[in-house]
Amino acid sequence: MQSMLGKAANTDWFGPLVVVIAAVVVIGAIEPTFLSAFNIQVLLSAIAVNLVIALAQMIIIAIGQMNLSVGAIGGLVAIAFAGMMEVWGIPAPLALVLALAIGLAGGLANGFIVAKTGISAFIITLASLSFFKGLNLGITEAQPFYGVPDAVKAFGNTNMIGPIPWLVLPAAIAGLGIWYLLAKLRIGRQILAVGGNPHAAELSGISIFQTTVWAHGLSGLLAALGGVMVVARLQIGQPSIGDDWLILSFAAPVIGGAVLAGGHVSVAGTALGVVVVAIITQSLVLFHIDPFVVQVVLGALILWAVGINRWREVRVERRLRGAS
């Protein structure tokens, strides 16, 4: 039993899990409404959307890069999804496919430029953030699309079972899909290999170009899914969708043990990182604390998580030096 606990304590997800359990117990004892069916539904809806957003960043962190345009892609897809249904009368399923295709194309474009030019992904995605946001505002003229079909609204605001909303379903599929890709599929192993040591990966026959392009493509696709889910949840295609995704997209993977240098990420850890952020946000609302405090707390959490990761790296390095 102790050995199992010791092994669990060394995993990326153990720390966030302890924080989640402690937070639920303490906050639930202080404020009983925290565990009410309605609040659980609200919490799970936020977790579902934020998990997809965090996974969009996590897959880029896995290759040792970053994607500053996650929110801009999600926002462009959100207004495209709502606009296609309102302006052109396109059925929701077809609009969904087209919207996801836009996100995939945006991600692939990011990846192609990064891989082709060798310019830092930070610079390329900063530029594409401005480009995609400009398209968003040019299309909408800063006005929202209201013509979201009732079926889409229902999907974003009704429950499957008890307090579990339908939004949990696409988030769960995305999470399991990314876990399977990284753990079982060749492209997933290549992504982690490139993030861990690009030179060694290239010498072993892995195409850095293709791996980078596909990682960014997956990121764009996940950002697009997040944008569609937000439209369903808000029941409106709002041009500001995605503007506040950036900090969250980094916070959850880092809290979940992702190494910013690349090569190591955890889907389970990222999911628990999302839960930690959602619980903090929700508890601040319940206790009527200034919402701007959330940004301060997220910043502190990122610093804490990065510090813990660095501490682990130092311990491993010392252990390896001692063994040699």
Results as ranks from 00 to 15, higher is better:
Q282W: 00
I123Q: 13
A29L: 12
N39W: 07
V213Y: 11
L169D: 07
A251Q: 09
A223V: 02
G134E: 07
L167N: 08
L51D: 10
S219K: 06
D150F: 07
S207R: 11
H288F: 07
W214P: 07
V194I: 15
V20P: 00
G6I: 04
S240M: 05
A127G: 13
V70I: 14
L222D: 03
N157C: 02
S36N: 12
F38I: 15
Y146M: 12
S266C: 09
E86V: 00
V265A: 07
I47T: 05
G15T: 13
G188Y: 01
T11S: 15
A115F: 01
V213F: 07
F122K: 03
V24R: 07
E31K: 15
S36L: 10
A151R: 11
K7Q: 14
L126P: 03
Y180D: 15
G103V: 05
M229H: 10
W245M: 15
A29M: 10
P16Q: 04
L104Y: 00
F155S: 06
T11N: 11
N309A: 13
A115W: 01
E141K: 14
P93A: 08
G28E: 08
A174Q: 05
I164A: 08
A82G: 09
V285S: 12
W304G: 14
L167C: 06
S3F: 05
G262C: 09
A99M: 07
G107K: 02
L135E: 03
R233P: 00
Y180W: 14
I236S: 13
P198K: 13
F250K: 09
V231S: 04
I241Q: 03
M66N: 05
G226A: 13
I21C: 02
T158S: 15
S128V: 06
Q238K: 14
Q143F: 01
A95P: 11
G156A: 06
A29H: 02
R233N: 08
Q295T: 12
I21K: 00
T33G: 04
P16G: 04
H216L: 09
A258R: 09
M58V: 05
G322N: 09
G118L: 14
T212S: 04
R321Q: 09
E31S: 14
A154M: 13
G107Y: 01
T212F: 02
L181C: 09
A29I: 06
G103D: 04
I30S: 10
L43E: 08
L203A: 15
L225V: 03
S204M: 12
S45V: 09
F38Q: 15
V25M: 12
L126S: 04
I102D: 00
A48Q: 05
A29N: 04
I279R: 13
T11K: 15
A174E: 04
Q57P: 00
A22W: 01
A252Y: 02
S120L: 13
L98C: 06
A82R: 03
W311F: 09
R319S: 12
S45I: 08
G83V: 00
E31A: 13
V49S: 07
M85Y: 03
I178S: 00
S45H: 08
I30V: 14
I255Q: 04
G15K: 10
L182W: 06
V114C: 02
V274D: 11
I236W: 01
T117Q: 03
G188M: 03
V267M: 10
N50K: 08
M1L: 12
D243P: 00
T211G: 10
I61M: 07
R312P: 00
N136W: 06
I280Q: 11
G162A: 08
N50R: 03
V18A: 12
G83C: 01
G6H: 06
A8R: 06
